[in-house]
Amino acid sequence: MLVIRNSSLRRILRVLIPFVAVPLAVLIGAYVFEDKMYAYVSLLITVLAIVLFISGFERRETGSRRMVIVVVMTVLAVVGRFIPIIKPVAAITVISGVFLGGESGFLVGAMTAVISNFFWGQGPWTPFQMFSWGMIGLFAGILSRYLKRSKPILYIYGAFAGVLFSLIMDVWTVLWYEDGFSWEPYLTAIASAAPMTILYAVSNIIFLVILFEPIGKKLERIRTVYGI
């Protein structure tokens, strides 16, 4: 696995990619290509996610193990998306972020979007899903200390993640059906998507309640036993 040895570069990348590069890619994708070049944008975001993930590596020899664990979590999320109505994707992403680090969380979220869309259909919405779920995982990693310590904060974060996801997806709705972004249709979209937003938030909380402890324990065990 490729390692970025320079720790300050790593730190810069960790901030730069999620907060500058990825939003920029989405915006450029939306405005310059008029949102129609979703393939390029999703490609670009994925690459950024990978670079971000790589920048999280400290020791090389754990590379393949960590990678497989990320794959396992992704597969869980992908399989979980087949559950009707309430989806555990965001919850699993949050758990990955908390226990494996923000970069891994980002990657789990982003990869889940790409892979599960092989079944649910690829389209211009793919990069937006990648971005939103990725960010949910990343923030979970950054806030992991608080999320691990206090359950209420965790559930609030889960609810917030559901709202965030919905808000970002509404941006897509507006960009896709209207030419360019404007506030009025955006607010309409938010209003019309309110039931979905609540559903997202609720299902995130439900799955965090159910999954956080058991999966967390398993991940902790893997980390200690196999030294990841």
Partner: peptide, 12 residues
Amino acid sequence: FPKLGLLLAMTI
């Protein structure tokens, strides 16, 4: 992007 390719292949 070989690394991404591998990650996707493994997940699939």
